[in-house]
Each structure stands twice: as structure tokens, then as C-alpha cells.
């Protein structure tokens, strides 16, 4: 699949934003984010909402006819893209109400606030899950048609949210023990899930050129694509990345998205110096974002749409 920058940016950035909101609201409902006061929590929510919004805005850039984007709310019953749109739009009034409440009550969570916080958390989770399901529901792309895909989207969103929360806690001059520990656990879990995914897509297991063209036993090869230059189909679906490049980018994913942030957070937990803490806590999310951009690029570049079979690929 052609890796479209707007979609890569959207899924990474809004995933991180929603992840940050999920963790902040979750910890808030459980009795407050350790180390962060009302101002800190509000800032974290605000950062999360800004990131989520930036991502969602970017996602509209890949629409060829954005004038009709408002219609995307009407097929909630069948379309995951519609569900994503509905969840993300419902999220805004809820999170606004939650933030207003936090500001009024100075961070105290009564029963009402807890309910609103829970609603915010669920809507953010549902949005990220729906994003993953948009891809996972496509039977035409064997590398995406798996529960591993929404799992990865959720875990990466939560892990990046936790790393951001750690950074914010340190930026507020507070001890980040809880947020950092949470981030470590989530990073390890997400890395394992991603490794499982990479292992799973390693072997082509989708339809073959034989069932696509018809004769099921003979060898088939394409003689003529019937077109003198690339069509929409080739531009959208026939993207091929060199194996070497894929390998190099996977290394970037493992290093920048998982290993280095992990090491930095472990160092952070062990250090007392304010300046060093701040440096560690700010570099970790930046590295993570770089790693996740590479991860998302690969997610598209490694996906093989079955229409390629008609253009001569033997298996997808």
C-alpha cells in the first residue's frame, strides 16, 4: 500500500494524544495522577486533545472531496471509519466537560466527575480501536486482516501516551515514578505485540495469482497489464519497498520506539538531578515519535493488497 504521509501522521499523533488522555483520565478516576495537581492534569489533557485534533485534521487532508466529510457520521452501523468519526466527535464535548469540571473542583473526583472521566476514557479508547479496525476489517489486505492490528494500535497509543505523561510529570518538576513505571510496562508489552506482528506477516499467506485468475494448478504469469502507464490502482496499491529498507526501518522501530525510550526511562527512574531528568523525559517522547512514524510507514509499505495479483504478484 502507498504510505500516505497524512494518514501516517494522523494515526501516530492522534494515537499518542488519545493515549495521553486515556491514561490521564484513567489515573484521574482512580484517584488522581500521582505527582500531578489539577493544573498538571489539565495540561496533560490539553496536550492530549491538541495532539488528537492535529492528527484528526491531518486525516482530512487525504480526502479527495472534503466537502462531503460531514456525511461520514451516517454509516455508524456498518463502517469502522464512520464509527471512528462518531467516537472522535463525541469525545470533544465529554473531554471539555471533564476539563471544565476539573478546573471547577480543583481536581477532585466526585461520582459525577468519575463518570465523565470514564466516558472520556472509553470514547478515546473506542476511537483508537476503531482506527485499528478500519485496517483490520479489510479482507483484501492479508497483513492487516488480523486482531493483531487493533491490538498494536491500542498498545502503541497507550505506550506513547504513558511516555508523554512521564515527560509532562517531569516538566512539572514532580517525581515520575508511577507514570514512568507504567510507560515501561506498556513499552515492553507493545514491543512484544509488534514483534509477534512482524513474525506473523513474515510469510505470505494470502490468496494467490491462481485463484485470482482462475486456473488453480498451472503456473501463471502476467504478459500484459493492458495499460501503458500506471493507473490509480498501481499508484495506490503497488507500492513495494526494498527488503533492505524494510529491515533498516524495523531496526529504527525497535531502537527508537522501544529500546531507547525504555533505557531512557530506566535511567530517569534512577536519577535525582533535575536537569538530567528533564532531558531524559523530553528526549524519550521525541525518539518514540520518530520510531512510531517509521512503524506506521512500514505498516503501510508492507501491506500487500490482493489487486497486485492481477498485476503479476504470485501471492499476497
Amino acid at each position: 500500500m502507498h504510505p500516505a504521509l497524512s494518514v501516517i501522521f494522523f494515526t501516530v499523533v492522534s494515537g499518542a494524544g488519545f493515549g495521553l488522555v486515556i491514561l490521564t483520565a484513567g489515573l484521574g478516576v482512580l484517584g488522581g495522577v500521582p505527582g500531578l495537581g489539577a493544573t498538571g492534569i489539565l495540561t496533560a489533557l490539553l496536550v492530549g486533545v491538541v495532539l488528537a485534533t492535529a492528527g484528526l485534521m491531518a486525516s482530512t487532508l487525504h480526502l479527495a472531496n472534503p466537502r462531503n466529510a460531514w456525511r461520514a457520521f451516517f454509516r455508524f452501523r456498518t463502517s469502522w471509519l464512520s464509527r471512528e468519526a462518531v467516537f472522535s466527535v463525541l469525545f470533544y464535548p465529554c473531554v471539555a466537560l471533564y476539563m471544565f469540571g476539573l478546573w471547577r473542583t480543583d481536581g477532585a473526583h466526585g461520582i459525577g466527575m468519575s463518570l465523565v472521566g470514564l466516558l472520556v476514557l472509553l470514547l478515546a479508547l473506542a476511537t483508537v480501536f476503531a482506527t485499528g479496525m478500519i485496517y483490520a476489517s479489510l479482507r483484501t489486505i492479508p497483513q492487516w486482516n488480523s486482531p493483531l492490528v487493533p491490538t498494536n494500535y491500542l498498545l502503541l497509543s497507550l505506550a506513547s501516551g504513558a511516555v508523554l505523561l512521564t515527560g509532562l510529570t517531569v516538566a512539572f518538576g514532580e517525581p515520575p515514578a508511577v507514570a514512568a513505571t507504567l510507560a515501561l510496562v506498556l513499552l515492553v508489552t507493545a514491543a512484544m505485540a509488534k514483534a509477534v506482528y512482524y513474525f506473523w506477516i513474515g510469510k505470505p499467506q494470502g490468496p494467490t495469482i491462481n485463484t485470482a485468475v482462475g486456473p488453480t494448478r498451472a503456473r501463471i504469469k502476467i504478459l500484459e497489464s493492458g495499460q501503458s502507464s500506471d493507473s490509480f490502482l498501481n499508484r495506490e496499491f503497488s507500492y513495494e519497498a526494498a527488503a533492505e529498507r524494510i529491515l533498516r526501518l524495523r531496526l529504527v522501530v525497535y531502537l527508537c520506539a522501544f529500546l531507547l525510550p525504555f533505557v531512557l526511562l530506566v535511567l530517569l527512574l534512577g536519577t535525582d538531578g533535575a536537569a538530567l531528568s528533564l532531558a531524559l523525559a523530553l528526549v524519550a517522547p521525541v525518539l518514540l515519535m520518530v520510531g512510531l512514524l517509521a512503524e506506521r510507514w512500514l505498516f503501510f509499505a508492507e501491506a500487500r493488497h490482493v489487486v497486485n495479483l492481477f498485476y503479476g504478484r504470485q501471492q499476497c
Partner: peptide
């Protein structure tokens, strides 16, 4: 149609093509 391409992704047979001029 808002030109999101998702239906073209969902079609196994390459039957749908986005008109890039019309959107």
C-alpha cells in the same frame, strides 16, 4: 462521496478508481 478511498481498498478486484480531478 468524500473521496476517502476506503472502498477501493476494500475491493479485491481493482474495480474502483478515484477520479483525482473530481475527487
Amino acid at each position: 462521496c468524500m473521496g476517502c478511498n476506503l472502498c477501493a481498498w476494500a475491493c479485491p478486484y481493482g474495480a474502483r478508481e478515484l477520479d483525482e480531478a473530481v475527487g
